[in-house]
Amino acid sequence: MKFKAVRVFEEEGRFIPRIIERSMEDLPAGDVVIRVAYSSLNYKDALSCTGNRGVTREYPHTPGIDASGVVVESTDSQIQVGEEVIVTGYDLGMNTDGGFGEYIRVPASWVVRKPEGISLKEAMIYGTAGFTAALSVYELVEVVKPEAGPVLVIGAAGGVGSHSVKFLVKLGYEVVGVVGSEAEREFVLSLGARDTISREEADDKSGKPMLKQLWAGVVDTVGGNPLSIGIRSTKYGGVVTTCGNVAGGGIPEMNVYPFILRGVRLIGIDSVKCPVGKRVDVWKRLSDSWKGENLDRGVLEVGIEEILEKVKKMLNSELVGRVLLKH
């Protein structure tokens, strides 16, 4: 059987993505074959399309680090044909052909049964970005309560950031988002944030080891200097989660004082190898108590013929909100 897929080829040192027809026999080894209903566009997918060896080592390759769909073949007794399932993380879309194809074959251990409270489309509106955001909020709300004060979301208009804003607002937190443009500001305010600040307003070049205590908690999605400033301006006993590095892998001007004098906690978020128990628990919360209204606000649904154009826009920082791929 033939199916459509995005395939990135390496040709004379250039990486060229194309939409091609593939055969089921071309899929990698695995226990479960899934007919993909939806995937979503993430920054890792865009990097994979450009030949980034930190994401994908070998080409040709099909990106798509998340997928939801229906099981069509299974050699695992715990996963039945016809079940609706979700796959995020692990090696999907990195070095294992991913959700930008109409079918995927994966190990059974990667597969999560979709909770009843959400549809296949809603699962990918969350996708890897929503799941990562949920992990961030999951860690923060264990310690920081709404009455403790505002929570800062750095990179609030992006995929992880916008979901984080939605979850925190749903749970009763006062949210302030860091944004890069007026369009981003309007978008983040529409999600329920109390206020936004620009990247310039959030910046600090004083080099002080600690800054004024402003935030009960911080959800950081970019790393680098914004993360450093977030840590140094977190209130006593606050929590900072971090899950990205688009602003840099280092933490400039950082020191131990926020941790030993204010008791600030820094928690790293890994959605790739998240333990299955926590994975199932978080998806359950996303399907019921954390699920907000207007889940599709800020979501653009496209077909496979349009996804490569959106990849270019993401790489040029021209996307606001989420892009959903429907097969």
Rank of each mutant, 00 (worst) to 15 (best):
E58Q: 14
D26T: 14
V111Y: 05
P28F: 03
L47G: 02
R35T: 00
G117A: 09
S68N: 12
K121T: 13
S48M: 01
Y59E: 11
E83M: 12
P63L: 06
T88P: 04
A129G: 08
F131S: 02
E73M: 08
R113E: 06
S48V: 02
Y38C: 03
T50C: 10
R105F: 05
S68H: 13
T56N: 11
K44L: 04
T128H: 00
P107S: 09
E116Y: 02
V111D: 03
L47A: 11
I86A: 01
A129N: 02
S74G: 10
V85D: 07
R53I: 09
G130D: 00
D91Q: 12
T56G: 01
M124K: 10
V111N: 07
D45M: 09
T56V: 08
V81Q: 10
G30F: 09
S39W: 01
P60S: 11
Y103C: 00
V72C: 08
N42D: 13
R113I: 10
N52L: 11
Y126C: 08
G54A: 06
L92G: 02
G82T: 14
T88Q: 13
N95Q: 12
H61C: 03
Y43I: 02
L47D: 05
A108L: 09
L27S: 11
D45F: 05
V55T: 11
W110T: 00
F100E: 02
L120D: 13
Y38G: 04
V85Q: 08
T128K: 00
M124P: 00
M94T: 14
V106L: 12
I125D: 03
R113T: 14
I65G: 00
H61M: 15
Q78V: 07
A46M: 12
V32E: 05
S119G: 15
V112Q: 13
S39L: 02
V72Q: 12
I118T: 03
V111C: 05
Q80C: 14
V33Q: 10
G127L: 04
F131D: 03
D76V: 07
E102F: 03
A29W: 13
D45N: 10
H61S: 11
A129L: 05
G98H: 04
G89F: 07
V112E: 15
P115Y: 05
I104H: 09
Q80E: 15
Y90D: 04
E122S: 13
T132M: 08
G54M: 10
I65K: 00
E73V: 06
V71Q: 03
R57N: 13
V106H: 14
K121Q: 15
L47C: 06
V33W: 03
K44N: 09
D26P: 10
C49E: 09
I125V: 15
A123I: 06
W110L: 01
R53T: 15
T128P: 08
I125T: 01
D66R: 09
P28S: 12
R57S: 15
K114H: 15
S40H: 06
P107D: 07
T88H: 08
R57C: 03
M124N: 06
G89H: 07
N42G: 12
T132C: 13
E102T: 01
T132F: 08
F100T: 00
N52W: 14
L27F: 14
K44M: 11
D26V: 00
R113Y: 14
N95Y: 11
